[in-house]
Simulated assay, not measured.
Amino acid sequence: MSTTTPLIAVTMGDGAGIGPEVTVGALLDDATVARCRPIVVGDAERLREAAEILDRRARIAAIESIADAVFEPGRINVIDLALLPTELPWGAVSAAAGEAAYQYVRVASELAMRGDVQAICTAPLNKAALHAAGHIYPGHTELLARLTSTEEVSMMLSTRMVKVIHVTTHIGLVDAVAKIEPGLVERTVRRGHGAIRASGVAQPRIGVCGINPHAGENGLFGYGEEEDKITPAIEKLCTDGIRAHGPLPADTAFFLAGNGEYDLIVAMYHDQGHGPVKMLGIEAGVNVTVGLPTIRTSVDHGTAFDIAGSGVADAGSMIEAMRQATELSTDI
């Protein structure tokens, strides 16, 4: 392994879900370990269990600090927090697992903020378990914003075919419409514009979705939300030279993006953006948190309690998340 490839902190996610399995699967992938130096923050014993379930030969090495890591084929370095109880059931909500998942993210964020690692890549946590442990966050995005003292961040889903950034995420649809306003739309587009430029696109083409069907169709649907909440932001962005187009009907926007006409789509709410990406296959999608002082990528799937511990979890999204974390950290 190269000693110049990026150091990536990999959080194991909820220990009762598929996080340990996809972490092991990704870190035994030859292409992954050729492009970066991963350090897992998690529980070494649970990763050993996952390797056995997957029937994969791996040396799970518990370390205390990054300086103790040795990078060689078949070895997985783990900053072992040893927080999970023995014989933790697979596939069940556990406050202990929720607490452990929180601590993995906390330690990884501290490593990133100190500059000890160049990026964070996260396996999925379970919101119910996180809440049962007393950590009331909708998910990784909001948790990492708090841990890094970042006022506002955006969720971007990234696939090879389309990239989507969200104006609102984990809130109800009625609340999302109320929250959308020109300033938030403008800031979201600017964050997405910066992220796409960082990936190597000099002049990103950005399609901005409307809120209502047919983007309101000139006032036929809705109550003028597009004109009041979105159009002023687009006008200001265009004045500043950002190639933002819209508001567009969401179905049209994603069709055009699939044909290569847009580098980024701006979704107004969670399902507007997630639905088209999930149709491409969750193994293809990666969640990127835009606006943090560090790079963070994640799988675009949950803890999958229904298959946890069975050895059938697909590590494809985790491998892709590691790839994008590496590429983004190399660009900075």
Rank of each mutant, 00 (worst) to 15 (best):
M1T: 01
T5L: 13
I8N: 00
A9I: 08
D14P: 10
G42A: 12
D43Y: 03
R48W: 07
R57D: 13
F71H: 02
E72N: 03
R75D: 01
N77P: 05
V78L: 12
A95V: 10
A96M: 06
A108I: 11
A112L: 10
N126S: 14
A128M: 15
A133S: 15
A133Y: 02
G139T: 02
E142F: 03
L143N: 07
E151H: 08
V153A: 06
M155P: 01
M155Y: 08
T159D: 11
V162M: 02
V167F: 04
L173D: 05
A176S: 08
A178D: 03
I180P: 00
V185C: 02
R190D: 08
P204A: 15
G207K: 00
G224I: 06
E225C: 07
E225Q: 14
E226F: 02
E227H: 05
D228A: 11
K229P: 01
P232M: 07
E235W: 04
T239M: 12
A244C: 04
P247N: 04
A250V: 01
T252R: 09
E261M: 15
G275R: 04
I282C: 14
G285N: 03
V286L: 13
D306P: 12
S317H: 10
M318Q: 04
E320I: 06
A321K: 00
A321F: 03
R323A: 09
A325M: 03
E327Q: 07
T330Q: 07
